[in-house]
Amino acid sequence: MVTVSDRIGLDLCAALRPGAGLEQVGAELSRVVARVVAHDALRCGVLNPATGWGATSLAFWHGYPPDLGRALLSVDGIKADVRELIRPAVPVVVADLGLRSGAHDPLLARSRVGEELRLALRDARGVWGVLCLLRAAGGRPFDDADAWRIAELGPSLIAALRGYVTAKPGAPAEREPPPGMLVVGADDRVRAMTPQARPWLEAMKAHLAVPDWLTESSYAALAAAARERPEPPRLCVPSVGAGWWTAIEAQPLGDDGDVAVVIQRATGTLLLPSFCDWYGITARERQVMQYLHGGSAPKQIARAFELSVHTVNDHLKAIFRKTGTSGRDELMAVINA
Rank of each mutant, 00 (worst) to 15 (best):
R303M: 09
V259R: 00
A186D: 06
A197I: 05
V93L: 14
R265D: 02
C44L: 08
V32E: 00
A220W: 00
P179Y: 03
H104I: 15
V33G: 01
V94W: 06
L271P: 02
L117R: 06
V4M: 14
V240T: 03
F305K: 05
A167F: 06
A260Q: 07
A89F: 07
S217H: 04
A145K: 14
G114M: 08
L182I: 05
E174H: 13
V46P: 00
G324P: 00
C13D: 14
T325P: 00
W53G: 08
E231C: 14
P91K: 06
R70A: 07
F142I: 03
Y64A: 05
V90H: 12
R321A: 10
D188C: 09
P199E: 05
M289W: 01
A159R: 03
K317T: 15
I86E: 14
L201R: 12
E285Q: 14
G241H: 12
D76N: 09
R149L: 06
A221W: 09
T311I: 09
G9T: 04
D81Q: 11
C44Y: 07
R83D: 00
V37I: 04
G280E: 02
A192I: 14
A171R: 06
A242L: 09
L182Q: 01
A171L: 13
G69A: 14
M193I: 10
L316T: 06
A223Y: 01
S217T: 08
P65L: 05
A226P: 03
G69Q: 11
A197T: 00
A221L: 11
D277L: 11
P199T: 00
M193W: 10
V46A: 01
E231R: 15
A27M: 07
I248N: 00
D329I: 11
W148Q: 15
L47V: 08
K168P: 15
P141H: 07
L134R: 08
F142E: 10
V2C: 12
V210Y: 00
K168R: 15
I301G: 04
G21Y: 02
S101D: 15
V262R: 13
A171Y: 04
G180R: 06
W245K: 04
C44R: 06
W213D: 03
S5R: 15
W245L: 05
N313P: 09
P179W: 02
Q251W: 08
P49S: 07
E330F: 02
L222I: 02
A247F: 08
R227Y: 02
A147M: 11
K299S: 06
R189H: 12
L72M: 10
R227D: 02
A260P: 03
A337H: 09
W53C: 09
G163K: 00
S326M: 11
A59W: 13
D277W: 03
R175M: 14
V113E: 06
Y291R: 15
D96S: 13
A173T: 12
L271N: 01
E176M: 11
A337Y: 11
A171M: 09
W213N: 01
T323Q: 05
D314T: 15
G52I: 06
N48Y: 00
R17C: 01
G170P: 01
L47P: 07
V210E: 05
E216G: 11
M332W: 06
E249Y: 04
E306H: 12
I78V: 13
V190W: 01
D277T: 09
A27V: 07
V210W: 03
S239M: 12
A209F: 09
D96N: 13
G69S: 07
Y164G: 01
P18Q: 04
L22A: 05
P232I: 05
A159Q: 03
Q24P: 12
F305Y: 14
A283G: 15
H207L: 15
